Simulated assay, not measured.
Amino acid sequence: MKRLALLALIAASPTFAQDTSPAKLIAGYEAQSGKAADPAAGRAFYLAAHGTGKPETPSCTTCHTKSPKASGQTRVGKVIDPLAPSANRARFTDSAKVEKWFGRNCDSVLGRACTAAEKANLIAWLASL
């Protein structure tokens, strides 16, 4: 009985909340954009120096490193967990967090919101690693 109560508590914990998956996100962004996700375009997007956002964050790799399987670091030194779902099971499982961080990071790197196609491409590439 105690074990069942503990499992119920863990499942209800916000830390373990999983309302989506990389596959569901990709499908949703594909539907919004009307285009199939292109992992190669996602890789190119991630590695590119865009130069249209904030000068201190010209690319995704500024904070996330060139390897999405590795931990990154914010400009103030805070550790960022790996982006690749294969290295971080919790990545792309909370739709609110996904949208929050796309909003912040796209604005910082691009100076604008990411398109649905860019999001689909990026997640498709990260999920393929």
Rank of each mutant, 00 (worst) to 15 (best):
Q32D: 12
K35F: 07
A37N: 10
E56G: 05
N121L: 12
E118P: 05
N105T: 09
K119H: 04
D94I: 04
K69A: 14
C106M: 09
S95T: 09
C114K: 06
M1D: 13
D94Y: 12
S13T: 08
T20D: 08
C63L: 13
W101R: 03
V76A: 15
R112E: 04
L122P: 03
I26R: 01
I123T: 12
A12N: 05
A84F: 13
F102T: 03
Y46W: 04
H50S: 03
D19L: 04
G51S: 02
A37F: 06
R75E: 10
L6S: 11
F45P: 01
R91P: 11
K54W: 13
V76Q: 15
C106S: 13
W125A: 08
D19Q: 04
P82E: 14
K2Q: 15
A37H: 11
I26L: 06
K24H: 01
P14M: 09
L126C: 06
G28Q: 05
P68Q: 11
A17R: 03
F45Y: 06
L110G: 00
A41F: 09
G77C: 04
A31S: 11
S128Y: 07
A49M: 02
K78M: 12
S108N: 09
V79C: 01
A116Y: 07
T52Y: 00
R43D: 07
A49T: 01
A8K: 09
A124Y: 14
V98F: 13
L25T: 01
F102W: 09
N88I: 12
A44W: 03
T93S: 13
T61N: 10
A127E: 15
N105D: 08
L6H: 12
L126R: 10
L9K: 02
K119W: 06
T74Y: 07
A87R: 14
P22K: 08
A84R: 13
K69I: 09
F92E: 13
Q73W: 04
L83V: 00
A70I: 05
R75V: 02
S128G: 11
